[in-house]
């Protein structure tokens, strides 16, 4: 999720410095290897069993038809991939996921920015507002789902009551294929706000005040200041938030399961939910593995773009 980057890319690597002398004897060498085994071994073991091996296994299974226990039975090569991309249901899942991911990212960043800018004001009690704005960070997926399921409820929900009072056409949010995805998008954005606000607010706070004083003296308006000074300066942070939000949105599962169960009419059947359905409800592990590989590929590409663009600032 969070990728931390060094503050100072010149920071020296102490390990590299102290090494040459200490590796001179074989006794020292084997003692160091013991340390490596103790310090690195447990993590390496866990990652191998629960990250690397599953990835290889998933790739492998994606080339097979599987029996109902999930064992590979018939080798089919790339057939699973071919049938996946010729399957209109999967393509519509992919489409819905893209819509969801883009809408969530754009709305999260715009609203998070609005909160961050509003919280910059020097006013009495501003700390209280800052705490409130970051609060959705502490709200977990099932709690958020309960709050919003209630709000979207067609008979007692606040949205239904508002449209009733205003004599607007009533929308059955979660049962209407045109609105269910929007309902999940709204809930996701709301959940994302706390974290996004905190990061963007921190970035804005760190901009030098002298810059804005100078702009003020030069008679530059607040709006221009925001678009010409603040926004370009915090663009690396914006990019970071965008990547985190994108990746998180591609992995969405909980809200779908809790709010719409993929429906109505598969309108909210996003990628991870489909993997779950195909594997654990339909027992089609080969196909579900293929879908997992596609998901991994998407996320790997986004992460690679991030590493690439920030690469100069990370030292390996």
């Amino acid at each position: 999720m969070l990728q931390s980057l060094p503050r100072n890319s010149n920071s020296k690597d102490p390990g590299a410095q102290s090494a040459p002398v200490r590796l001179s004897t074989t006794a020292q060498w084997s003692k160091d290897n013991l340390y490596v085994a103790i310090f690195l071994g447990p993590s390496l073991l866990i990652l191998s069993v629960f990250v690397f091996w599953p990835m290889i296994k998933t790739l492998y299974l994606s080339l097979f038809l599987t029996d109902n226990l999930g064992h590979a039975s018939v080798f089919v090569g790339l057939n699973n991939y071919m049938s996946l991309f010729n399957n209109p249901a999967y393509l519509s899942s992919l489409g819905a996921t893209l819509m969801y991911v883009i809408a969530v990212s754009v709305l999260t960043i715009i609203l998070g920015m609005l909160l961050a800018v509003a919280a910059q004001q020097r006013l009495r009690g501003i700390r209280f507002f800052r705490t409130i704005f970051s609060s959705t960070m502490g709200i977990s997926v099932s709690v958020a789902a309960i709050f919003w399921l209630f709000a979207f409820n067609p008979s007692v929900g606040v949205f239904a009551q508002i449209s009733q009072a205003l004599h607007l056409p009533e929308i059955n949010w979660l049962a209407d294929p045109h609105f269910a995805l929007l309902a999940v998008i709204m809930t996701t954005v709301w959940m994302n706000l706390g974290f996004t606000f905190l990061i963007l607010f921190g970035a804005l706070q760190q901009l030098p005040a002298s810059l804005f004083e100078a702009a003020e003296i030069a008679g530059v308006g607040k709006t221009t200041q925001f678009f010409k000074i603040s926004l370009p300066l915090i663009s690396p942070t914006l990019f970071f938030v965008l990547i985190v939000t994108l990746i998180d949105a591609f992995k969405s599962f909980g809200l779908i399961d809790l709010m719409t169960v993929g429906g109505p009419n598969n309108a909210t059947n996003l990628l991870v939910y489909r993997v779950y359905q195909d594997a654990f409800l339909n027992g089609n592990y080969g196909l579900a593995s293929t879908e997992s590989v596609v998901l991994t590929a998407i996320i790997a590409v986004i992460t690679l773009i991030q590493f690439k663009l920030l690469g100069k600032r990370v030292n390996y």
Partner: peptide
């Protein structure tokens, strides 16, 4: 490993 989503590895 940061590129590999756990969600895509639940089957194995």
């Amino acid at each position: 490993t940061m590129m590999l989503p756990f969600e895509a590895e639940v089957i194995p």
